[in-house]
Design a binder for these strands. Structure first.
Length: 542
DNA sequence: CTAGGGTTAG
């Protein structure tokens, strides 16, 4: 670097005004070549040694460099703090830097507050969106709103939209966001979309939809907000039908497309919806669309493809995309592991995890990874291995188990008939056991014919979920299997009195563009005989 | 120099 600087100081050969102009050109160019803090310090020493009038300009460049290239906000702040009175550009640069690093987001607001207290420099309307992006405190939007009104920027659509967005992200803030939205004189497509996303985040899909219907104009992000809202709230087929509307709205009569065509964000959501609904054919079409339109295979898209193919049962395709994806993030690994687990590929799921482990601290597993692993172990009946993973998760990785992890563990132990250990786990849980936990235990009791424990599980289940008759029906079946008909009659009578009917389990699969749907104990499919013949042969083979 | 949209688990 010293050598580089030696040859890269053209301003030393010129004097006066032209030397300053050269500095303005060459400092950014020098910064582009630098990649380490030490190199930056050399430039800094040179600049501040000159003590010229444009200190603020160069400090601005250096702060931005610290934030964007080095991610060293503390050093950026030191440069900032050396200035006697930083101008609005410096405050904006420093606040933007903090706001874009989640772990520093509270500093963004604190620095803004300092600026307001000093009353110098005066804020401009550009700074508010940056300040609001940090979202450190729930009351922050209110405070900033007050400042905005006082400083006279209250009617700037961009500032209002940033405020609206900030309100809508704070808990129970959608109503405040809506008030602001209703008061706005000038609403842009961005304001509408921000409001829709606010509704989406609290699961108010009805409000989101009706606002979307009323929008005077729509662009790609507004369609995406609605489609993403559907997938994030579990309305997967709805998401796909909105995708179809989007496509037909973007297709003119001559069959050519224009306007709001699906982009990378749209297809990432749509692929997720395809995975959840098993819509393999559409998923493949979307894959082609991605390739035809040269949409970049970024993390979101490649991971969504892995997930879609995996969930639809095309594990070879999923694995192919996973293997060809050079840049993988945690979600890539998790998607692959979870898909393999879903289809009972225990050995492969574990081997993908072990490959992931070779990256050490560069690719640490999280909660979702362990859900996949525990599911894989349950499918494969690897009780001890599953227990070891659970142990490693809490002990080695310091991950607090979710209720889902306990659900997997109880499922694993219950299927293996290890009821004593299962009860121990339930007793030691820091979270209140839910119906999944007792349901998993009950399932284990059914497999192993443990009536007493089944009674306990059912009583807990009825407490937690009184309207669901399925548990009682399961208990009745269990008595039936053991020939205890008196007990069967008793349970059925209670079920009838409580008017609790079993909601049947339902699954479906798409084969050759045709959807086949099955309820539990369902004999209505036209090829039922063949299906059950194959099923029985599979059971025999197992 | 400013505002809205994305993947995994349940």
């Amino acid at each position: 670097m010293a050598r580089m600087l030696h040859y890269q100081r053209p301003w030393q050969q010129t004097r006066g005004a032209s030397s300053m102009a050269n500095l303005h050109e060459h400092v950014p160019r020098l910064l582009e070549r630098c990649s380490h803090l030490n190199q930056l310090k050399q430039i800094q020493a040179l600049l501040f040694g000159l003590a010229h009038a444009d200190t603020q300009f160069f400090a601005f460049k250096l702060v931005r460099f610290c934030a964007l290239k080095l991610s060293d906000l503390d050093y950026g702040r030191r440069i900032f703090d050396h200035l006697r009175s930083p101008n609005i550009y410096l405050y904006t640069a420093m606040i933007t830097a903090y706001a874009s690093h989640p772990e520093h987001s509270s500093s963004a607001f604190l620095l803004y507050r300092d600026m307001v207290r000093r009353a110098r420099p005066r804020p401009n309307h550009f700074i508010y969106p940056h300040v609001l992006k940090s979202r450190s405190e729930p009351l922050e939007a209110d405070i900033v709103h007050g400042h905005v009104l006082k400083s006279g920027f209250g009617q700037y659509p961009v500032v209002q939209t940033a405020l609206l967005d900030s309100y809508s992200r704070s808990s129970s803030g959608v109503d405040s966001a809506r008030l602001l939205f209703d008061e706005m004189h000038e609403r842009t497509v961005v304001s509408w979309t921000a409001m829709i996303s606010g509704y989406v985040r609290f699961g108010l899909m009805g409000d989101a939809m009706s606002l979307f219907e009323k929008m005077p104009e729509r662009d790609v992000p507004s369609w995406n907000a609605l489609i993403a809202g559907c997938t994030q709230n579990g309305f997967f087929s709805q998401a796909l039908s909105i995708l179809r509307s989007m496509i037909s709205a973007s297709t003119s009569e001559d069959g050519k497309t224009r306007g709001n065509r699906p982009n990378a964000v749209t297809v990432a959501c749509a692929l997720s919806a395809c995975g959840h609904t098993g819509t393999l054919q559409l998923g493949k079409e979307i894959h082609c669309y991605i390739l035809r339109n040269g949409l970049a295979l970024d993390f979101y898209i490649s991971n969504a493809l892995i997930d879609m193919y995996g969930k639809c049962g095309s594990l070879i395709e999923a694995r192919g995309i996973f293997d060809r994806t050079v840049k993988r993030n945690l979600t890539s690994w998790n998607s692959m592991i979870n898909c393999l687990a879903l289809h009972g590929q225990t050995r492969q799921a574990i081997s993908v995890f072990e490959e992931m482990m070779t990256f050490g601290v560069d690719m640490l597993p999280d909660e979702v990874t362990f859900i996949g692993l525990l599911n894989a172990c349950t499918h494969g009946g690897h009780v001890e291995r599953g227990q070891a993973y659970f142990e490693a998760m809490t002990q080695d990785y310091g991950i607090q188990p979710w209720i889902e992890h306990y659900g997997c563990l109880i499922d694993l132990l219950g299927r293996a008939g290890k009821f004593e250990e299962a009860l121990q786990v339930i007793g030691a849980m820091k979270i209140q056991p839910d119906e999944v936990i007792w349901g998993s235990l009950l399932n284990g009791c059914r497999v192993h014919g443990d009536i007493d424990l089944a009674e306990l599980a059912v009583s807990k289940l009825i407490e937690l979920d009184p309207d669901n008759g399925g548990y009682g029906a399961m208990l009745a079946n269990l008595y039936g299997e053991q020939g205890k008909w008196e007990e069967v009659r008793r349970v059925r009578k209670t079920l009838k009195e409580r008017d609790a009917y079993k909601t049947p389990g339902c699954s479906w699969v798409e084969i050759n563009n045709q959807l086949h749907q099955f309820y539990s104990v369902d004999l209505t499919h036209p090829r039922t005989d063949e299906i059950y013949t194959v099923l029985e042969s599979l059971v025999d083979a197992g």
